[in-house]
Design a protein around this nucleic acid. Structure first.
Ligand code: NAD
Ligand code: NAD
Lengths: 213, 213
DNA sequence: ATGGTTATGTTATTATTTTCACAAAAAGTG
DNA sequence: CACTTTTTGTGAAAATAATAACATAACCAT
């Protein structure tokens, strides 16, 4: 389970490396990357070690090589198609951001919605009725979906995605989705995130035994 | 640091409890709540114990009492004002969702943007020019801000928020913000989250030592 | 009452993650 | 070429977190 933190950090490192490269750097050291990514140098070396990534004993890491290794791990070179279910506030924001995803070789190829008024192109992405979703998934070999539907419909939508053959879901509805355990689910509860920030910023009190956040 | 997971889980529990209450339930047990929240019963009891929340030795927990305790911890009864910086795709989606936040007693009271064309009301929320942000923060005692600006401006915006007196930031820009450590920062990198889901769903390979996600 | 059952609360145990520490390789230096 | 400096890579130690275990209180049925 905790491999996911590991992966999350590697992705973070990649993001920082891309920025370093844009700034014209050629090399990084575990401590310079660590400073940028907000992680200890040892942690970085451990993470790299875990995935068999080697640096140069004294010369740090060559950014281009590091990025190659990370891109290999994350299958960066293949373009990865994903679908979006629910094209409301959040769904629309994601659809409009598609060129940002595309830079990372992720691409929302289609949206789906039950509301007929949503059935139109948004930022070049066709939005289709829910009924055609299962066929679309099968015909295009889609494995990952983003869910941005109301909480009441979320479990039902999740079920049909799983039935259609989806293997990974990024869910924005404030509910813990249940799915067979071979399906990877990431619940993003923005209200809870906001609330935890508020709590840590304002309410952390000693009498609750909270020392730091 | 790990206290934050603890808090995240408590918020999750609260979410589930609200749903249970809506469904007409009066009591929960550590196992029923656990099933709903995707957490082990022991973990739940541990979390409650950590925050001094008590149940009934045989009757489980009274939902209303539990919610009272959790609301007390999270200062739910006071309405918490937050501001939003950057009213683009994501910022707009959040602004439009404001009644959803309001239900949780969180409220976006104002947006700020450098783009003059954004300076108008969105869903009743006034969007103001960046120049007035510091004064607004001070006059209204705002402590938490949501940042939805491009990565290039993010650190600069963060700095001015911190200077204005902000104590907590929820950041959507794909960059690890640096701030004094009394400031709580939560970086939400949606690209990375999506990518990690894709990785776990598709690419987890034995030869990388990855067994499960 | 009394004995059995149930679910909490907490202590003990196990597992995981992070940090520490240091040997070893590379690169510079005189 | 020896000697110093630097930074990686990793195994050992420490810290944290999750799980299991179980004693204890509350309830129920007889
Ligand atoms: N917008 C935000 O800032 C925000 C913040 C926190 C959480 N969320 C959560 O994210 C989810 C989406 O939020 P939103 O503001 O975009 O909501 P929204 O109501 O604007 O959009 C939901 C979309 O899903 C579609 N939909 C409903 N049922 C469907 C179904 N069964 N199949 C397919 N499509 C369906 C609707 O037609 C609509 O277009 C919600 O669960 C919400 O609680 C949103
Ligand atoms: N939209 C998405 O789905 C998505 C997904 C992943 C990450 N992100 C990240 O979230 C952030 C926002 O994304 P978006 O799609 O909403 O971008 P956007 O370009 O639509 O909106 C950014 C807004 O910030 C404003 N802005 C720019 N500089 C500013 C400054 N210095 N002060 C105040 N306002 C400023 C702009 O005027 C604009 O209104 C970006 O960093 C993006 O990388 C967005």
């Amino acid at each position: 389970m905790q491999i996911r933190n590991n992966i999350r950090r590697l992705l973070q490192y990649r993001m920082c490396l891309i920025r370093f490269r844009e700034l014209g750097f050629e090399r990084v050291y575990s401590y310079s990357l660590g400073r940028e990514a907000g992680v200890s140098p040892e942690q970085i070396r451990k993470d790299f070690s875990r995935f068999g990534i080697k640096g140069n004993k004294r010369g740090g890491y060559l950014i281009s090589e590091l990025l190659d290794s990370l891109n290999y791990i994350f299958g960066k070179n293949e373009l990865q198609d994903v679908i979006l279910i629910g094209v409301g506030n959040i769904g629309m924001a994601l659809a409009r951001y598609n060129c940002g995803f595309f830079k990372r070789r992720k691409y929302i190829v289609a949206g789906f919605d039950i509301d007929p008024s949503k059935i139109r192109k948004i930022n070049e992405i066709p939005v289709l009725p829910m009924e055609v979703m299962p066929r679309f998934v099968k015909e295009n070999g889609i494995t990952v979906g983003i869910m941005a539907v109301p909480a009441v419909s979320a479990q039902e939508v999740c079920n049909s995605l799983v039935n259609a053959g989806i293997k990974g879901i990024m869910n924005f509805a404030p509910i813990v989705l249940k799915a067979p355990k071979h399906v990877v689910i990431e619940n993003i509860n923005l209200c809870n995130v906001l609330e935890s920030v508020i709590y840590c910023a304002n309410y952390a009190r000693d009498d609750l035994g909270v020392l730091e956040c």
